[in-house]
Deep mutational scan, measured.
Amino acid sequence: MKVTIEENEETGKFTIKVKTEDGEEKTIEIPKENLEEILAKLPPNVEII
């Protein structure tokens, strides 16, 4: 699983794009305050880009 994290400076939010092993892609946008909480919940086999 690969996770790409991009900061949107205009909105102050982060866009998180997840690509699973089977090629499925999902995108979510979260507030900056929630980034550490989300990262802590990721499984250890995740590659963060």
Rank of each mutant, 00 (worst) to 15 (best):
L42M: 06
V18Y: 15
V3I: 12
K41H: 09
N45W: 14
K26G: 04
E9D: 08
I49F: 10
T15R: 11
M1E: 02
E33I: 05
E6A: 06
D22F: 10
E36D: 11
K13S: 12
N34Y: 14
E10I: 12
K17N: 08
E21F: 10
N45H: 10
K26W: 15
E6L: 10
K26I: 15
V18K: 00
P31T: 13
T4G: 01
K13D: 09
T27G: 03
T20Y: 15
L42P: 00
I49T: 07
E10W: 11
V18D: 00
E24D: 08
D22M: 07
K41V: 05
T11H: 04
E6Q: 09
K17G: 02
P43T: 06
G12S: 04
K13G: 15
E24Q: 12
K32M: 08
V3H: 02
I28A: 03
P43N: 07
I49V: 09
A40H: 06
I28E: 04
E10C: 14
V3Y: 09
T11E: 07
V46Y: 11
I48Q: 02
P43I: 07
K13Y: 13
N8D: 08
E47G: 05
T11Y: 04
I5S: 01
E25T: 10
K26S: 12
T27D: 03
P31G: 12
D22N: 10
I49G: 03
E25N: 03
P44Y: 14
E33H: 07
E37A: 12
V46H: 05
K41M: 14
K19I: 14
V3G: 01
A40P: 02
G23L: 02
E7T: 06
E33P: 03
K17I: 13
K41R: 13
I5Q: 01
I16K: 00
N8V: 04
F14T: 05
I48E: 02
I28R: 01
L35I: 06
E10P: 03
E29G: 02
I5F: 03
K17A: 04
E10Q: 11
E21P: 11
E36P: 11
I28Y: 15
V18Q: 01
T4M: 06
E25R: 02
E6W: 15
V18M: 13
E37R: 09
P44A: 09
V18L: 11
L39W: 04
I28N: 01
E29K: 05
E7R: 12
I30Q: 01
L35Q: 00
V18F: 15
E33L: 05
N8H: 06
I30W: 04
G12T: 03
M1K: 02
E37C: 13
F14K: 02
T27H: 08
E25Y: 10
L42V: 03
T27A: 05
P43Y: 12
T27E: 07
I5E: 01
E10V: 11
V46G: 02
I38E: 13
E36A: 14
K41G: 11
D22I: 04
I30H: 01
I38W: 15
F14P: 01
E37P: 04
L39H: 00
I48F: 10
L42C: 08
L35E: 00
T27R: 06
E37D: 10
K2L: 08
F14E: 02
G23C: 07
N45P: 05
T11P: 04
E47Y: 09
K17P: 00
K19C: 13
K2C: 13
I49S: 06
N8Q: 04
E7P: 05
T15A: 04
E33Q: 07
E7V: 13
N34H: 13
E36S: 10
K13T: 14
T27N: 05
I49N: 05
T15M: 09
F14A: 04
I28W: 15
M1R: 02
E24I: 11
L35W: 07
T20C: 15
P43Q: 05
L39Q: 00
K13R: 12
E37K: 09
P43G: 15
E9C: 15
K19R: 10
E37V: 08
V18R: 00
M1S: 04
E21V: 11
P44F: 13
L35C: 07
E47V: 12
I30G: 03
K13C: 15
G23E: 03
K19H: 11
K32C: 10
G12F: 04
I49Y: 08
T20V: 05
P31N: 13
P44E: 07
N34M: 15
F14G: 01
L35F: 05
L42F: 12
E10Y: 12
V18P: 00
V3S: 01
E21T: 09
L39A: 00
I28G: 01
V3C: 11
K17D: 01
T4I: 11
P31V: 08
D22V: 05
D22H: 07
E36T: 09
T27K: 05
K17T: 14
T11N: 11
I30F: 08
K26V: 14
V18W: 15
E47I: 14
I16M: 07
N8C: 08
L39E: 00
I16D: 01
L39M: 06
M1C: 14
I5R: 02
E21W: 14
F14S: 04
P43M: 08
E9Q: 10
E9T: 14
E33F: 08
A40V: 04
E21G: 10
I30S: 03
E33A: 10
